[in-house]
């Protein structure tokens, strides 16, 4: 388990999610793929936090300021942020799915092309 392998895993999950967004027309599938992409990003953030120390920590060994300590876990904090954003996003998306289904009794993105130029 090295940083490289984790980054490859994260990139793979991200790209698979991206493929899902681009290739599927069902809106629920799209939402699911977005969640996959989020997960790929969190993996990258956490592994950076685990494997690359903050520059502030590298400089002086004993006299570590609280700022440096707090930045050392910023990867985890970003993970928390991403997860909460994902929760908000999925709730909103679900409401949108309801409305879309109500409007056209379909959840296919292809049917929602009113913005066509």
């Amino acid at each position: 388990m090295t940083l490289d392998s984790l980054l490859i895993l994260s990139a793979a999950v991200f790209c698979i999610g991206l493929y899902g967004i681009l290739s599927k027309t069902n809106i629920v599938s799209t939402i699911m793929s977005i969640e996959l992409m989020f997960n790929g990003i969190i993996i990258a953030a956490v592994s950076f936090s685990r494997f690359t120390p903050s520059a502030l920590l590298m400089n002086n060994s004993f006299d570590v300021s609280s700022f440096a300590l707090n930045t050392a876990l910023s990867g985890h904090v970003f993970g928390v942020f991403i997860i909460s954003i994902a929760a908000a996003e999925s709730a909103l998306a679900l409401a949108l799915v309801f409305v879309m289904f109500n409007k056209k009794s379909s959840v296919d993105i292809v049917d929602f092309n009113e913005l066509k130029g």
Partner: peptide
């Protein structure tokens, strides 16, 4: 929630 949404398809 997603499983919930799936039931609307």
């Amino acid at each position: 929630l997603i499983a919930f949404a799936v039931m609307f398809i």
